[in-house]
Protein backbone atom coordinates (compact mmCIF):
# COMPACT_ATOMS: atom_id res chain seq x y z
CA UNK A 1 0.00 0.00 0.00
CA UNK A 2 1.21 3.48 -0.79
CA UNK A 3 1.84 5.94 1.95
CA UNK A 4 0.52 9.45 1.98
CA UNK A 5 3.25 11.98 1.39
CA UNK A 6 2.27 15.17 3.16
CA UNK A 7 5.22 17.33 2.18
CA UNK A 8 3.02 20.12 0.91
CA UNK A 9 1.18 20.64 4.16
CA UNK A 10 4.42 21.65 5.87
CA UNK A 11 5.15 24.45 3.46
CA UNK A 12 1.63 25.71 2.84
CA UNK A 13 -0.66 26.89 5.57
CA UNK A 14 -3.87 24.92 5.07
CA UNK A 15 -6.99 27.02 4.75
CA UNK A 16 -9.13 24.16 5.97
CA UNK A 17 -10.76 23.94 9.39
CA UNK A 18 -8.85 22.65 12.38
CA UNK A 19 -9.12 18.86 12.65
CA UNK A 20 -11.52 18.84 15.58
CA UNK A 21 -13.74 21.48 13.97
CA UNK A 22 -13.86 19.41 10.80
CA UNK A 23 -14.63 16.36 12.92
CA UNK A 24 -17.55 18.09 14.61
CA UNK A 25 -18.88 19.44 11.33
CA UNK A 26 -18.74 15.92 9.86
CA UNK A 27 -20.42 14.50 12.93
CA UNK A 28 -23.32 16.91 12.57
CA UNK A 29 -23.88 15.88 8.94
CA UNK A 30 -23.79 12.25 10.07
CA UNK A 31 -26.29 12.98 12.80
CA UNK A 32 -28.59 14.76 10.37
CA UNK A 33 -28.31 11.84 7.97
CA UNK A 34 -29.09 9.22 10.61
CA UNK A 35 -32.05 11.28 11.83
CA UNK A 36 -33.36 11.75 8.30
CA UNK A 37 -32.93 8.14 7.29
CA UNK A 38 -34.55 6.77 10.45
CA UNK A 39 -37.51 9.00 9.70
CA UNK A 40 -37.62 7.83 6.07
CA UNK A 41 -37.60 4.23 7.26
CA UNK A 42 -40.56 4.84 9.57
CA UNK A 43 -42.45 6.59 6.77
CA UNK A 44 -41.71 3.63 4.50
CA UNK A 45 -42.91 1.17 7.16
CA UNK A 46 -46.04 3.25 7.51
CA UNK A 47 -46.70 2.91 3.79
CA UNK A 48 -46.08 6.59 3.05
CA UNK A 49 -43.15 6.03 0.67
CA UNK A 50 -43.63 4.15 -2.60
CA UNK A 51 -40.71 2.24 -4.08
CA UNK A 52 -37.66 1.58 -1.96
CA UNK A 53 -35.77 3.24 0.85
CA UNK A 54 -31.99 2.76 0.85
CA UNK A 55 -30.04 4.03 3.78
CA UNK A 56 -26.37 4.41 4.64
CA UNK A 57 -26.46 3.29 8.27
CA UNK A 58 -22.95 2.36 9.28
CA UNK A 59 -21.42 4.13 6.28
CA UNK A 60 -22.02 7.75 7.25
CA UNK A 61 -18.42 8.41 8.31
CA UNK A 62 -17.02 7.34 4.94
CA UNK A 63 -19.76 9.09 3.05
CA UNK A 64 -19.53 12.41 4.87
CA UNK A 65 -15.81 12.54 4.18
CA UNK A 66 -16.60 12.11 0.46
CA UNK A 67 -18.74 15.23 0.40
CA UNK A 68 -16.91 17.38 2.90
CA UNK A 69 -13.69 18.05 1.02
CA UNK A 70 -15.32 18.89 -2.30
CA UNK A 71 -15.69 22.50 -3.31
CA UNK A 72 -17.98 24.35 -5.66
CA UNK A 73 -17.06 23.26 -9.18
CA UNK A 74 -15.99 19.77 -8.11
CA UNK A 75 -17.92 16.77 -9.41
CA UNK A 76 -19.62 14.36 -7.00
CA UNK A 77 -21.04 11.00 -8.07
CA UNK A 78 -22.67 9.50 -4.98
CA UNK A 79 -24.41 6.14 -4.81
CA UNK A 80 -27.22 4.75 -2.72
CA UNK A 81 -25.65 4.97 0.74
CA UNK A 82 -24.25 8.48 0.47
CA UNK A 83 -26.81 10.69 2.12
CA UNK A 84 -24.16 12.06 4.47
CA UNK A 85 -21.88 12.92 1.56
CA UNK A 86 -24.70 14.39 -0.48
CA UNK A 87 -25.71 16.65 2.40
CA UNK A 88 -22.14 17.71 3.08
CA UNK A 89 -21.73 18.48 -0.65
CA UNK A 90 -24.74 20.76 -0.51
CA UNK A 91 -27.83 18.75 -1.32
CA UNK A 92 -30.92 20.34 0.20
CA UNK A 93 -32.96 18.23 2.59
CA UNK A 94 -36.04 19.14 0.59
CA UNK A 95 -34.56 17.44 -2.48
CA UNK A 96 -34.48 14.22 -0.47
CA UNK A 97 -37.93 14.42 1.08
CA UNK A 98 -39.59 15.66 -2.10
CA UNK A 99 -38.11 12.78 -4.07
CA UNK A 100 -39.01 10.11 -1.52
CA UNK A 101 -42.47 11.49 -0.85
CA UNK A 102 -43.32 12.02 -4.52
CA UNK A 103 -43.67 15.80 -4.65
CA UNK A 104 -43.79 17.20 -8.15
CA UNK A 105 -41.46 19.98 -6.99
CA UNK A 106 -38.49 17.70 -6.31
CA UNK A 107 -35.50 17.57 -8.66
CA UNK A 108 -36.83 14.39 -10.28
CA UNK A 109 -40.49 15.52 -10.34
CA UNK A 110 -41.76 11.99 -9.75
CA UNK A 111 -39.92 10.73 -12.82
CA UNK A 112 -37.31 8.93 -10.76
CA UNK A 113 -37.26 8.10 -7.11
CA UNK A 114 -35.27 7.72 -3.93
CA UNK A 115 -31.49 7.69 -4.32
CA UNK A 116 -31.41 8.16 -8.11
CA UNK A 117 -31.84 11.83 -7.63
CA UNK A 118 -29.24 14.39 -8.60
CA UNK A 119 -28.70 17.87 -9.88
CA UNK A 120 -26.16 17.52 -12.68
CA UNK A 121 -26.28 21.28 -13.29
CA UNK A 122 -24.89 21.65 -9.75
CA UNK A 123 -22.35 18.86 -10.26
CA UNK A 124 -24.34 16.31 -8.23
CA UNK A 125 -24.51 13.54 -10.82
CA UNK A 126 -27.70 11.46 -10.89
CA UNK A 127 -26.75 7.80 -10.62
CA UNK A 128 -28.21 4.98 -12.67
CA UNK A 129 -28.81 1.62 -10.99
CA UNK A 130 -26.21 -0.13 -13.12
CA UNK A 131 -23.24 0.07 -10.79
CA UNK A 132 -19.93 1.20 -12.15
CA UNK A 133 -21.56 3.25 -14.92
CA UNK A 134 -21.02 6.56 -13.13
CA UNK A 135 -17.24 6.23 -12.95
CA UNK A 136 -16.72 6.92 -16.64
CA UNK A 137 -19.36 9.65 -16.55
CA UNK A 138 -17.36 11.37 -13.80
CA UNK A 139 -14.18 10.92 -15.85
CA UNK A 140 -15.90 12.52 -18.85
CA UNK A 141 -17.03 15.49 -16.78
CA UNK A 142 -13.46 15.97 -15.55
CA UNK A 143 -12.05 15.70 -19.08
CA UNK A 144 -14.52 18.34 -20.17
CA UNK A 145 -13.40 20.68 -17.40
CA UNK A 146 -9.82 20.18 -18.50
CA UNK A 147 -10.71 20.89 -22.14
CA UNK A 148 -12.35 24.10 -21.02
CA UNK A 149 -9.18 25.14 -19.23
CA UNK A 150 -10.54 24.98 -15.69
CA UNK A 151 -8.02 24.41 -12.93
CA UNK A 152 -7.96 23.03 -9.41
CA UNK A 153 -11.04 20.84 -9.70
CA UNK A 154 -11.49 17.26 -8.60
CA UNK A 155 -14.12 14.55 -9.01
CA UNK A 156 -15.16 11.99 -6.45
CA UNK A 157 -17.12 8.88 -7.32
CA UNK A 158 -18.46 6.39 -4.78
CA UNK A 159 -18.72 2.66 -5.28
CA UNK A 160 -19.23 -0.44 -3.17
CA UNK A 161 -17.26 -3.65 -3.20
CA UNK A 162 -20.05 -5.23 -5.24
CA UNK A 163 -19.93 -2.50 -7.88
CA UNK A 164 -16.16 -2.94 -8.05
CA UNK A 165 -16.73 -6.34 -9.61
CA UNK A 166 -18.75 -4.93 -12.53
CA UNK A 167 -17.20 -4.49 -15.98
CA UNK A 168 -18.15 -0.82 -16.17
CA UNK A 169 -16.14 -0.15 -13.02
CA UNK A 170 -13.05 -1.70 -14.57
CA UNK A 171 -13.44 0.38 -17.73
CA UNK A 172 -13.98 3.53 -15.69
CA UNK A 173 -10.88 2.97 -13.56
CA UNK A 174 -8.82 2.30 -16.63
CA UNK A 175 -9.88 5.37 -18.58
CA UNK A 176 -9.43 7.56 -15.47
CA UNK A 177 -5.82 6.45 -15.17
CA UNK A 178 -5.18 6.66 -18.92
CA UNK A 179 -6.52 10.21 -18.98
CA UNK A 180 -4.91 11.09 -15.63
CA UNK A 181 -7.97 12.98 -14.49
CA UNK A 182 -8.14 14.33 -10.92
CA UNK A 183 -10.43 11.59 -9.65
CA UNK A 184 -10.92 9.98 -6.25
CA UNK A 185 -12.84 6.72 -6.09
CA UNK A 186 -14.06 5.83 -2.63
CA UNK A 187 -15.02 2.18 -2.42
CA UNK A 188 -16.92 1.16 0.68
CA UNK A 189 -16.67 -2.52 1.39
CA UNK A 190 -19.76 -3.10 3.51
CA UNK A 191 -19.24 -6.84 3.18
CA UNK A 192 -22.45 -7.65 1.32
CA UNK A 193 -23.57 -6.96 -2.24
CA UNK A 194 -27.25 -7.22 -1.37
CA UNK A 195 -26.99 -10.71 0.18
CA UNK A 196 -23.76 -11.87 -1.45
CA UNK A 197 -20.89 -12.01 1.08
CA UNK A 198 -17.33 -10.95 0.26
CA UNK A 199 -16.07 -14.48 -0.35
CA UNK A 200 -18.57 -14.90 -3.19
CA UNK A 201 -17.78 -11.46 -4.64
CA UNK A 202 -14.02 -11.49 -5.15
CA UNK A 203 -11.04 -13.70 -4.52
CA UNK A 204 -8.19 -11.24 -3.97
CA UNK A 205 -6.72 -10.61 -0.52
CA UNK A 206 -7.37 -6.90 -0.43
CA UNK A 207 -9.35 -4.80 -2.89
CA UNK A 208 -6.92 -1.91 -2.52
CA UNK A 209 -4.26 -4.05 -4.22
CA UNK A 210 -6.11 -3.42 -7.44
CA UNK A 211 -5.13 0.26 -7.39
CA UNK A 212 -1.61 -0.30 -8.65
CA UNK A 213 -2.86 -2.50 -11.48
CA UNK A 214 -4.81 0.40 -12.91
CA UNK A 215 -2.27 3.10 -12.22
CA UNK A 216 -4.12 4.48 -9.21
CA UNK A 217 -2.68 5.27 -5.80
CA UNK A 218 -4.46 3.17 -3.19
CA UNK A 219 -5.29 3.59 0.48
CA UNK A 220 -7.24 1.49 2.96
CA UNK A 221 -9.09 2.69 5.99
CA UNK A 222 -11.34 1.69 8.86
CA UNK A 223 -14.64 3.21 7.78
CA UNK A 224 -16.02 3.21 11.31
CA UNK A 225 -13.37 5.73 12.40
CA UNK A 226 -14.48 9.20 11.40
CA UNK A 227 -11.06 10.69 12.09
CA UNK A 228 -9.43 8.18 9.76
CA UNK A 229 -12.08 8.79 7.08
CA UNK A 230 -11.44 12.52 7.17
CA UNK A 231 -7.70 12.11 7.09
CA UNK A 232 -7.47 9.49 4.35
CA UNK A 233 -10.27 10.69 2.07
CA UNK A 234 -9.33 14.32 2.67
CA UNK A 235 -5.75 13.42 1.80
CA UNK A 236 -6.84 11.63 -1.37
CA UNK A 237 -8.90 14.62 -2.50
CA UNK A 238 -5.96 16.90 -1.82
CA UNK A 239 -3.56 14.69 -3.78
CA UNK A 240 -5.93 14.39 -6.75
CA UNK A 241 -6.38 18.15 -6.76
CA UNK A 242 -2.62 18.62 -6.68
CA UNK A 243 -2.18 16.54 -9.82
CA UNK A 244 -1.23 13.16 -8.38
CA UNK A 245 -2.57 10.09 -10.19
CA UNK A 246 -6.18 9.05 -9.56
CA UNK A 247 -6.80 7.85 -6.02
CA UNK A 248 -8.57 4.73 -4.79
CA UNK A 249 -9.68 4.56 -1.16
CA UNK A 250 -11.12 1.31 0.16
CA UNK A 251 -13.05 1.63 3.41
CA UNK A 252 -14.14 -1.31 5.50
CA UNK A 253 -17.53 -1.21 7.28
CA UNK A 254 -20.56 -3.39 7.85
CA UNK A 255 -23.87 -2.36 6.33
CA UNK A 256 -26.07 -1.89 9.42
CA UNK A 257 -29.30 -2.26 7.49
CA UNK A 258 -30.77 -4.36 4.73
CA UNK A 259 -29.87 -3.67 1.13
CA UNK A 260 -33.06 -1.65 1.18
CA UNK A 261 -35.74 -1.45 3.81
CA UNK A 262 -37.61 -4.29 2.11
CA UNK A 263 -34.71 -6.58 3.08
CA UNK A 264 -34.43 -7.93 6.64
CA UNK A 265 -30.74 -8.85 6.11
CA UNK A 266 -31.24 -12.19 7.85
CA UNK A 267 -28.26 -13.51 5.94
CA UNK A 268 -25.81 -11.27 7.83
CA UNK A 269 -23.96 -13.66 10.13
CA UNK A 270 -23.56 -13.21 13.88
CA UNK A 271 -19.77 -13.59 13.57
CA UNK A 272 -19.46 -10.70 11.18
CA UNK A 273 -21.50 -8.51 13.50
CA UNK A 274 -18.74 -8.97 16.09
CA UNK A 275 -15.98 -7.79 13.75
CA UNK A 276 -14.32 -4.44 14.52
CA UNK A 277 -15.59 -3.03 11.21
CA UNK A 278 -19.16 -3.75 12.40
CA UNK A 279 -19.06 -0.86 14.86
CA UNK A 280 -21.55 1.93 14.38
CA UNK A 281 -19.47 4.86 13.13
CA UNK A 282 -21.89 7.39 14.55
CA UNK A 283 -21.59 5.96 18.04
CA UNK A 284 -17.82 5.72 17.70
CA UNK A 285 -17.64 9.38 16.65
CA UNK A 286 -19.92 10.49 19.45
CA UNK A 287 -17.85 8.57 21.99
CA UNK A 288 -14.73 10.33 20.72
CA UNK A 289 -16.44 13.69 21.12
CA UNK A 290 -17.39 12.80 24.69
CA UNK A 291 -13.99 11.33 25.56
CA UNK A 292 -12.07 14.28 24.15
CA UNK A 293 -14.61 16.73 25.61
CA UNK A 294 -14.94 18.45 22.24
CA UNK A 295 -18.43 19.61 23.18
CA UNK A 296 -20.59 19.03 26.24
CA UNK A 297 -23.63 16.80 26.54
CA UNK A 298 -25.98 19.75 26.35
CA UNK A 299 -24.61 20.80 22.99
CA UNK A 300 -24.91 17.27 21.67
CA UNK A 301 -28.55 17.18 22.79
CA UNK A 302 -29.12 20.55 21.13
CA UNK A 303 -27.62 19.29 17.85
CA UNK A 304 -29.87 16.25 17.98
CA UNK A 305 -32.90 18.46 18.47
CA UNK A 306 -31.88 20.74 15.61
CA UNK A 307 -31.41 17.79 13.28
CA UNK A 308 -34.84 16.42 14.16
CA UNK A 309 -36.44 19.81 13.61
CA UNK A 310 -34.82 20.24 10.19
CA UNK A 311 -35.88 16.77 9.11
CA UNK A 312 -39.44 17.22 10.37
CA UNK A 313 -39.74 20.50 8.53
CA UNK A 314 -38.45 19.05 5.25
CA UNK A 315 -40.86 16.12 5.53
CA UNK A 316 -43.83 18.27 6.46
CA UNK A 317 -43.17 20.61 3.52
CA UNK A 318 -42.87 17.78 1.00
CA UNK A 319 -45.97 16.06 2.37
CA UNK A 320 -48.05 19.15 1.72
CA UNK A 321 -47.00 19.38 -1.92
CA UNK A 322 -48.96 17.99 -4.84
CA UNK A 323 -47.83 14.79 -6.53
CA UNK A 324 -47.27 14.60 -10.29
CA UNK A 325 -50.30 13.62 -12.38
CA UNK A 326 -50.32 11.37 -15.43
CA UNK A 327 -52.71 13.48 -17.48
CA UNK A 328 -50.77 16.68 -16.80
CA UNK A 329 -47.31 15.20 -17.32
CA UNK A 330 -45.18 16.42 -20.20
CA UNK A 331 -44.51 13.03 -21.81
CA UNK A 332 -41.47 14.13 -23.75
CA UNK A 333 -38.07 12.47 -23.36
CA UNK A 334 -36.26 14.92 -25.66
CA UNK A 335 -35.29 18.51 -25.05
CA UNK A 336 -35.55 19.15 -28.83
CA UNK A 337 -39.31 19.26 -28.99
CA UNK A 338 -39.66 19.45 -32.76
CA UNK A 339 -37.83 16.13 -33.07
CA UNK A 340 -40.26 14.20 -30.89
CA UNK A 341 -41.57 11.16 -32.73
CA UNK A 342 -45.32 11.21 -33.24
CA UNK A 343 -45.90 7.55 -32.38
CA UNK A 344 -49.32 7.09 -30.89
CA UNK A 345 -50.05 10.80 -30.89
CA UNK A 346 -51.59 11.23 -34.35
CA UNK A 347 -55.38 11.39 -33.99
Amino acid sequence: MLQTAQRQSKTKKPKTALPHERFLEAFRWMLLTRTLEEKLVSLYRGGLITGGVYIGKGQEAVSVACGLFLKKGDIFAPLIRDQAGRSAFGERLLDVTRTYLGSRLGPMRGRDGNIHRGRPQENQLAMVSHLGAMISVTVGALMSKRFKGEKGFVGLACIGEGGMQAGAFHEGMNIAAVEQVPLVIVATNNHYAYSTPNDREFACDDLVDRAIGYGFEGYSLDGTDLGACLEVIGGAVKRARAGRPPQLVVASVLRLSGHGEHDDASYVTEEIKREPFARDCLKVAEQAIVDLKLVDAETLAEWRKEAAAKVDEAIATAQKEAPPEGDKEDWCALSTRDLVDDVGTIE
Binding site: I75, I135, V137, I175
Partner: peptide, 15 residues
Amino acid sequence: MVGTAIGSAIEGMRP
Protein backbone atom coordinates in the same frame (compact mmCIF):
# COMPACT_ATOMS: atom_id res chain seq x y z
CA MET B 1 -16.22 5.64 -24.03
CA VAL B 2 -19.92 6.48 -24.04
CA GLY B 3 -19.80 7.11 -20.28
CA THR B 4 -17.03 9.67 -20.69
CA ALA B 5 -18.98 11.25 -23.54
CA ILE B 6 -22.06 11.57 -21.30
CA GLY B 7 -19.99 13.19 -18.55
CA SER B 8 -18.37 15.56 -21.03
CA ALA B 9 -21.76 16.48 -22.48
CA ILE B 10 -23.19 17.22 -19.03
CA GLU B 11 -20.22 19.56 -18.56
CA GLY B 12 -20.98 21.41 -21.79
CA MET B 13 -19.04 19.67 -24.57
CA ARG B 14 -20.54 18.02 -27.68
CA PRO B 15 -18.66 14.75 -27.91
